[in-house]
Design a protein around this nucleic acid. Structure first.
Lengths: 134, 134
DNA sequence: AAATATTTGTCCGTATGTATC
DNA sequence: CGATACATACGGACAAATATT
């Protein structure tokens, strides 16, 4: 499964393979991934490499990791719809540490910022919000 | 600077401190951060810990890292304004690997997706785009 | 052009701590 | 309490990209 001499880093080959299995539905939403130790055996790599691959899928928000439990394929969350006024400017940027704590956002989580002129009209967690321009 | 017994992981204390220095302007946009080796000496931690802190600031898109060169505080890029039609739905989600390659997005980079009904009207790199609801 | 130094990237092993079951 | 699993942290080694001499 892993070609150590392909020039592609092993952690990336591993992340690519896991991503493919997730997108294909082989690893369905809500399903548990094998443990880090098991993945290391399956792919023939050390734990640091496993964790690098897991970290990648995490920033892509394809999986959720729970300390002491394991790793799960992320399930779709119903998105709340927020109407924005005409003339608004909409921006997506990485959440600050405070914002991550406020909304329990994952690593790399973003927020949607709605502005009017220089005034900030609202800030919303990007992973569970859709903006509508009614 | 680092309290090994505070309960807060050392990499997080380090990331917090570097973030503070960046936001305060002590490390200005475009400025080079010290090398990993130097940071390790300054904070009294190993290289793995330095790299974990750096990775954090990277997902927060506060810094850019160039292989073989070093780490720089990210500079503000002018954002392109894209007008969206009334009735559109706007969503921000993590970029796929293909999208990251297309727009040269950093790890954890997002895209803004503009939809009308179930039709996708446009996809834009979130770090250099503002949407306007004219 | 070429060799050298610097710096980040990858990968491994090991140990210990902490959360969940 | 014990077993399992993820989190933190160190050390070492070599590869690859960049900059300098």
């Amino acid at each position: 499964m892993i070609d150590a001499h392909s020039g592609v880093p092993r952690w990336r080959q591993m992340a690519n393979d896991l991503r493919r299995r997730i997108v294909a539905g082989e690893l369905a939403p809500g399903a548990d991934l094998p443990s880090e130790a098991r993945l290391g055996q399956d792919y023939g790599v050390g734990r640091a490499t496993v964790r690098r691959a897991i970290a990648q899928l995490r920033t892509e928000q394809l999986i959720d990791v729970v300390h002491g439990y394991g790793t799960r394929v992320r399930e779709d969350v119903p998105r709340e719809r927020v109407a924005v006024q005409r003339g608004s400017i909409i921006r997506s940027r990485p959440a600050s540490p405070d914002e991550r704590a406020t909304w329990d956002l994952p690593e790399g989580g973003h927020v949607l910022v709605v502005m009017s002129g220089d005034q900030i009209r609202g800030t919303y967690p990007a992973d569970r919000t859709d903006l509508t321009t009614a």
